[in-house]
Structures are given as C-alpha cells and as structure tokens.
Amino acid sequence: MLRHIPVGLVLAWLVIGVAVLWALIPDLFTSYSATIGVARQQLRAPSAEHWFGTDALGRDLYARIVYGAGNSLTGAFVAVGVGLIVGTALGLVAGSARSRVDGAIMRSVDVLLSIPQLLLSLSIVILLGFGTVNAAIAVGITSIASFARLARSEVVRVRSSDYVEAAFGSGGTFGRVLMRHVLPNSLTSVIGLAALQFGSAILAISTLGFLGYGAPPPTPEWGLLIAEGRNYIARAWWLTTVPGIILILVVLSANRISESFSRSRS
C-alpha cells in the first residue's frame, strides 16, 4: 500500500504537518523571539546562526515565520469554519424548502458571487476592524456563497432519493428525516470543498495581511512579513522570498491534499 502512495502527497502531508506543529508548539522549533530584535544583527543574510536571516530590527526571520504560522493557520480554520457552517445551513434550508425561501436565498447567493472576493473582504474588514480574526471572518463570509450552492445541489439530489422518500413514507417527520438522512449524506462534497478552501483561505488572509488589513505589527503573520520585507528587497532578498516560498508551499500542499480527497470520493 505504501508503494502506491504518491510522493507528492506524502510531501504535502509533511509540509502541512510541519506548519501545524509550528502553529501549536512554536517554542519547540526556535529559541529566538518573534518580536524582540538583537542589537547589531540587522539585515543579516541566512547563516547557521539565523537560518532565514534577520530583518531590519534584528529579529530572526525563521522565528517570525514559525510564530506567524499560528496566526495564518488559525485564521484559515476560522474562515473555512464560517463558510462551512453558514453556507451549509443556507444550502440545507434552500434545498429542502423548494419555495420562495429557496429563491430568496439563492438570489442572495448570486449577489455574493457577483462581487469580487477581495473587494468584498476589504469592505467587511473595514467594517469589522483590522486584525487576523476579523480578516478571517471576512474571508469566511466571501466563501459562504460557494458552500451554499454546493450544499443546496447535494441536498436536492439526496432529497429525491428513494430511501429519503421511504423515510417520509414510514412516518418520519420532516426535521428528523432532514437531519438523519439528508444532511449526513450531503456533507461529503461539502467537506471536500472545505479542504480545498483551506489553502485559498490561507492565501486570502495573507493577501489582506500584505495590504495592511491583518495582524498589526509587530505580530508575525506571513502576509505581513512579505509586506515588511518589500522595502528591503534590493538589500535583503530573503525577507520577502523566504516567507513567500513558505506560503506557496503550504497553499500548494493543502490543494494537493484536497485533490486527493476528491479523487478518493470519485
């Protein structure tokens, strides 16, 4: 069985596992502070002492990336959770109602889909205030429409199945059949979309952080690290290159894992 596991999938799980460990126990991976710099250590190139170099304030870049994983991954989980819970609930109501309620919900979903996600995220963050949590909520709200459409289509498909009709025919109430038969059998594809949205959420939250709408300095966050290093890109290339590579690897790994889930379901 191990011979048939793709090497790329193994590497993807390894990258995600390391990122999760960074978020959970950052002290295990570095002894440097993520917010306090060392005098006369400004803009040091990558070396044995500082693996990823140091920034303009003498802070170890590797430590800031490790501690920044907590903010970036936590924000992604919050964003996916908001989209999954709210979107699935709306799709469940719309797919089971089949009336004006369905039309009203889906027209609202169409409106959300017509607005560019970045523009909608920026508008919500401005209303809620800056910060990683607020940025995550904004990204989650932008993904509600995708979850709602998929959940509705799955609910409509399951709702017309023979075993659901048999459950109604045997005396099952609408709510009981909905929660016991329709919802559990509609979640497979929705959970697969949640896995795919995880990588997109990391990228979206990092984008908001890069634009200055995420965690405020000196809090380490991957998008903020790239933004802080762009002013020194000619003198200290590692300040933007290394966080960018880490971000790309994590997003690609999350997408690779979600792709494997999609293949296993099919």
Rank of each mutant, 00 (worst) to 15 (best):
R44S: 13
R44Y: 09
S47T: 10
H50R: 06
T54L: 02
T54G: 08
T54F: 04
D55E: 03
G58V: 04
G58N: 04
R64Q: 15
I65Q: 09
I65S: 07
I65P: 00
V66N: 05
Y67Q: 11
Y67S: 11
A69E: 05
G70T: 15
G70E: 12
G70K: 15
S72G: 06
T74F: 13
A76D: 11
A76F: 03
A79E: 08
G81E: 07
G83D: 07
G87A: 01
G91P: 05
G91L: 08
V93G: 04
V93T: 11
G95N: 03
G95F: 02
G95V: 07
S96A: 11
D102T: 13
D102E: 14
A104K: 08
M106T: 09
M106A: 07
S108I: 14
S108N: 14
S108V: 12
D110K: 00
V111F: 12
L112E: 09
L113K: 05
L113H: 01
S114W: 07
S114I: 01
I115N: 02
Q117R: 13
L119H: 09
S121M: 12
S121P: 01
S123W: 09
S123E: 01
I124N: 04
L127F: 09
L128F: 10
F130Y: 14
A135E: 09
I137F: 10
I137V: 15
I137N: 07
V139T: 11
S143Y: 10
S143C: 01
S146Q: 11
F147L: 10
F147M: 09
R149Y: 10
A151P: 01
A151T: 15
S153L: 12
E154T: 11
V155C: 02
V156D: 11
V158L: 03
S160N: 14
S161T: 07
S161D: 10
A167Q: 10
